[in-house]
């Protein structure tokens, strides 16, 4: 409730903010900018995954097959991969293949890459989705609770404990956390299985290992946003109306933290999709991440290309979904970016 000094006049708009999109409604301009970014990202993703094999120093086929492989095999494989063609031709073929769902053939196992991915994709998707749901479901109540706690006289002393706990969960990386979970819940307590996927006994730890860190991070964002909202003048306005506490909290405060929560949540979700790589390795889950790691180790470039592409597409899909939600629920112009 600071008493303001003299009137601070609103500054006149800086020229930097003038763009052609300013003439459009904020939503339309947001949609245009984000669509532009999506298309550009798609292009970059395709080019990047195409380039994987070309950026490798030296001869990728020789590297993949090892120094003892016969020259004939190397030449044949190179021909199979189309590496003898000019690069532009290769790219055209690659894009044409993509459009038909053809991701090539593994150098090492001779399996069809698309088939391998199709078989393993559902596991990864389920893991990521469960992880996200757990993260959101935990983060909202914890973050809001922590914010409210921080404002009561007694809660202020408990606040460092909550913040410290969240801080530790954020700082410990997922693979370590998973090892810790295995040590406690599998080795020591014998409650859950340390490896595998599919039933409850084996699924709990991977989902926790994947989601606890992001959950803590998101909870902190929620807490910070919530404190900001609780300190705002419009919350004083709401208090002045002497509305029931639950209306003040859920109707006046909650909608104002959704944008920030979702924006960060979207980033976390795309982080989660990549986090599955680690979790699947720790818990020996037969998903795409596991496939990717073994492909990197064996230098199975076509497989790497395929899996990286699918992961990147998942990330783009997540970003798109978050943008769509933001555009529907956020009434303001605050959906702006740098």
């Amino acid at each position: 409730m600071a008493t303001a000094p003299g009137p601070v006049r609103p500054a006149e708009p800086a020229p930097a903010s003038a763009r052609f999109t300013d003439r459009l409604s904020p939503r339309a301009s947001f949609a245009i900018r984000r669509t532009g970014r999506l298309v550009a990202s798609l292009l970059i993703v395709v080019v990047a995954s195409f380039l994987v094999i070309h950026l490798v120093p030296g001869d990728p086929v020789r590297a993949a097959l090892g120094p003892t492989a016969p020259v004939g095999l190397v030449e044949n494989t190179r021909a199979d991969l189309g590496l003898d063609e000019p690069v532009t031709r290769q790219f055209a073929d690659y894009v044409a293949g993509l459009l038909q769902g053809d991701l090539g053939t593994s150098i090492q196992t001779r399996q069809d890459v698309a088939e391998v991915i199709a078989a393993r994709f559902p596991t990864t998707l389920t893991l990521a989705s469960l992880g996200f749901l757990v993260a959101i479901a935990g983060a909202l109540p914890i973050g809001m609770g922590a914010a409210l706690l921080a404002r009561t006289a007694r809660g202020r002393s408990a606040n460092p404990v909550v913040s410290g706990g969240l801080g530790v969960l954020i700082a410990v990386p997922d693979f370590l956390l998973s090892v810790g979970l295995i040590a406690v819940f599998s080795v020591w307590l014998g409650l859950f299985s340390p490896a595998g996927w599919g039933d409850l006994r084996s699924s709990v730890l991977p989902v926790l290992g994947l989601s606890l860190g992001p959950m803590a991070y998101l909870a902190r964002i929620v807490q910070v946003e919530m404190i900001k909202v609780l300190d705002s003048t419009y919350m004083t306005t709401a208090r002045a109306k002497r509305l029931p506490q639950r209306i003040v909290l859920f109707r006046h405060a909650l909608p104002n933290i959704v944008t920030a929560t979702l924006t960060v949540g979207g980033l976390l979700l795309s982080g989660l999709t990549a986090g599955t790589v680690v979790i699947e390795t720790v818990f020996a889950i037969p998903g795409m991440g596991n496939t990717l790691i073994s492909a990197v180790q064996t230098k199975d470039y076509p497989m790497i290309q395929g899996v990286v592409l699918v992961f990147a597409l998942m990330v783009l899909a997540v970003n798109l979904i978050v943008d769509l939600i933001l555009i529907t629920i956020d009434p303001r112009t605050s959906i702006s970016e740098g």
Binding site: P13, A14, P15, A18, D22
Partner: peptide, 8 residues
């Protein structure tokens, strides 16, 4: 003018 908007 800032963008298309005349200010002076």
């Amino acid at each position: 003018r800032y963008g298309a908007r005349p200010v002076v």
